[in-house]
């Protein structure tokens, strides 16, 4: 019986697996459309869910709306809360504006006094001196530090407007943490190990922090993964994100379909979208492209550049009314020369 089951799962040669995959993902996504956009509850890290997320992944958006990471801690220290917190402190991007209680600025004389909030400073365990030192690296300002304030003086006075721009930049400059990570939360697993989830993704910088499992940072941004871990990892990310998004909605799609889409998207070693700017827009056949989207554009370009259509795909053969090369249509019959002689 097991053998029969196994054999029934093997695809026959010539099966239109791409079409099957498209239908298998398309059907649940219409259901997702109907019940999207209402989720309740509190979640510490925001994620895009449902159909918008599926579209985001398949369109291969360079900037996902809610990127995030899951960071695992090295085994030695993964149960030590204090040490995990130390790592956490290095992660979250904290701007100057988050560490102060207020500021006074005099735009005409180009002087700004930032009043630091001692409570917030102690919660991030930094001192005014380190902040002043960090700000001192900027070339357009000079800093002075007294007890609770940092006095920022602008070097070149070029009118009120540019002074204000510099001040805003100073207030938004990051003091500790990794740029791009807005929020990090330490979480505990059932077995007592700690891990960190973040909103905002920057694997390259996170890998530089000691105590983190460098090869095991999970990000939901395929492009981040592609840059740091390579295509195969990016392919796994796309497939996993797609399947978990669909699962979250209470629907099921076989991994085979999702895996095929992920494979097709990463076929060239880079991530390509499945739409008209990616896979579908780069088909060899003019007729197939014209049948999909932007018909006139493709015909005009084909005319200008003298393209030929070899009529080997599916769409173009449907268009001209020929048998398509799918399933039994792929099989051609031939007769050997010797056999013809026998017939005579």
């Amino acid at each position: 019986m097991a053998k029969g089951k196994k054999e029934s799962l093997i695809m026959t040669s010539g099966e239109a697996v791409g079409t099957l995959a498209a239908q298998s993902i398309g059907e649940p996504s219409t259901q997702m459309m109907l019940r999207a956009f209402h989720s309740a509850g509190i979640s510490s890290v925001i994620t895009t869910r449902g159909l918008p997320r599926v579209i985001e992944l398949i369109d291969a958006r360079k900037r996902p709306r809610n990127p995030g990471m899951i960071i695992r801690i090295e085994k030695k220290i993964s149960k030590d809360y204090e040490k995990v917190r130390e790592i956490w402190r290095k992660l979250e991007d904290v701007k100057l504006s988050a560490l102060m209680s207020g500021y006074d600025e005099n735009l005409r004389s180009g002087v700004m006094t930032v009043h630091l909030d001692p409570e917030r400073l102690s919660s991030y365990e930094i001192t005014g001196r380190t902040i002043a030192a960090k700000l001192g690296k900027r070339e357009d300002i000079t800093t002075e530090q007294d007890e609770k304030d940092i006095v920022v003086k602008i070097k070149k006075k070029e009118g009120v407007k540019s002074t204000r721009t510099v001040f805003v930049n100073v207030l938004n400059s990051s003091i500790i943490g990794i740029p791009g990570i807005n929020k990090a939360v330490v979480q505990q697993d059932e077995d007592g190990t700690f891990y960190i989830t973040t909103s905002g993704s920057n694997i390259g910088e996170a890998m530089k922090i000691d105590g983190i499992e460098k090869e095991d940072i999970y990000s939901n941004d395929p492009f981040e993964v592609l840059k740091n871990y390579g295509v195969e990892a990016a392919r796994n990310t796309i497939a996993n994100e797609l399947i978990s998004t669909i699962k979250e909605e209470g629907l099921t799609v076989s991994y085979r379909h999702i895996g095929l889409v992920a494979d097709a998207m990463t076929l060239t070693g880079e991530i390509k979208s499945a739409g008209r700017h990616g896979i579908a827009g780069e088909k060899a056949s003019v007729l197939a492209r014209a049948a999909y989207e932007e018909t006139v554009k493709h015909f005009i370009n084909a005319g200008v550049f003298g393209e030929t259509d070899r009529l080997s795909g599916v769409a173009e053969n449907i268009l001209i009314g020929k048998q398509i090369g799918v399933g039994t249509g792929r099989i051609r019959l031939g007769v050997r020369k010797e056999d013809i002689k026998k017939l005579k």
């Binding site: 899951i70 697993d189 090869e215 999970y218 195969e232 796994n236 990310t237």
Partner: peptide, 12 residues
């Protein structure tokens, strides 16, 4: 913890 796939596979 959320289950995540093994990202880095063996290349040869």
């Amino acid at each position: 913890m959320v289950k995540t796939p093994e990202l880095i596979l063996k290349h040869e």
